[in-house]
């Protein structure tokens, strides 16, 4: 049985690498990624699961890393925005000017990447359903929608 009874080293599979992190069982995945592994792409926003700025992929699915304990992620495959390495969705965000201040961008991109991976043929309805998990206070929603649609369309043709 896997257990962690106090502060200790855990192994996390992040962006294809096995990384060790010193955490308490109560530390969130967001904390471990940023403060232990130096992966600051996932942003702390509300830290209450509302804003989506901390979204990463866990086993391919978008997860708000503020609502996941780091210990829960042991044995799972984590992907952060640092692991995308110039994916088409990143270029699409640039091409479509899909950000203003940029704070929400990595979370949006990871959610979009999850959708591209899981439902590359997503309908507009499904796309809207997924995108509603993230908030952009600069209100770049139209440009973000255009960015994700351009990648979904590109991959379908």
């Amino acid at each position: 049985m896997f257990q962690l009874t106090g502060e200790g080293l855990i192994e996390l599979n992040v962006n294809g690498e096995t990384r060790k992190a010193l955490v308490r069982p109560a530390d969130t995945l967001l904390f471990a990624l940023r403060e232990r592994l130096g992966l600051t792409g996932a942003k702390p926003g509300c830290e209450n699961g509302d804003c989506g700025a901390c979204t990463v992929l866990v086993d391919g699915w978008p997860i708000k890393s503020c609502l996941m304990l780091a210990v829960e992620a042991v044995g799972r495959e984590i992907q952060t925005v640092e692991g995308l390495n110039g994916a088409p969705i990143q270029k699409a965000f640039v091409d479509k000017f899909a950000f203003q201040c940029g704070y929400c961008t990595s979370g949006f991109i990871m959610n979009c990447q999850g959708l591209i991976n899981i439902h590359p043929d997503a309908s507009d309805e499904v796309m809207q359903e997924w995108l509603q998990s993230n908030i952009c206070r600069c209100t770049s929603y139209q440009e973000i929608t255009e960015a994700i649609k351009s990648v979904l369309i590109t991959e379908n043709t």
Binding site: M1, F2, A26, T28
Partner: peptide, 12 residues
């Protein structure tokens, strides 16, 4: 941040 400390167990 969660200030409380607790133990974590994952049985199968």
């Amino acid at each position: 941040m969660i200030p409380l400390n607790f133990e974590y167990y994952r049985p199968e």
